[in-house]
Amino acid sequence: MVKSYVEYTFKNSLPPNATVLLAAPTLPIQAEGGIPGNKGIWAGILSEMTEFALLFGVYFIARAHFPQAFKEGPLRLSLFAGTFNTVLMISGSYFVANAVLAIRQNRPRASVRWLILVLIAACGYLLTKYFEFRWNVGQGITGKTGIFFTVYYYLTFTHMVHVLWGIMGLLWVIARTRMGAYTPAEHEGMEAFASYWHATDLIWLVIFPLLYLLR
């Protein structure tokens, strides 16, 4: 009520050409109705989401059939490793969003610095996964330990493969940014990579609670 009164008063106190001035694009964020990156990357992202939807389907069916195994399983995993990797994935997503913002402000050097932070987060994720899998083996946990662990390895390995694809794309985008290939007007390739990286983060945001938290 108060807001609409303020809006009404504000609009009626403006000169006739004010609408045009207000509508002028000043935001360095996604254009209304636009596609972040390009259509090709979204075909890939939606395929990735579908692939994981099927794997989550397997998880849910396995959970329904073996509730006890899924109650006990998370207790044997390293919650620290899962939590740390979640923080790294979220941070990588935040860093890449900043890299895109920097290029839109025509600051390629700052953009490269943000992208290197993404690379550090991604390598941190892989290193944590390595120690986590090693720790698992030390605890006698392998893919054959039980249904929960089969699903755990299937989901986390598949996710890790997507992170590896992402790292290859990231190295390419870092090189292109350093070469000055992206401008505030044209940085489709960087946006496409950013969208892919966010999607990989999103998948982990499902995997983490399903495997490490829910019992």
Partner: peptide, 9 residues
């Protein structure tokens, strides 16, 4: 917000 889909396609 990170993917900026709020205003996108």
């Amino acid at each position: 917000h990170f993917m900026e889909l709020k205003t996108a396609n």
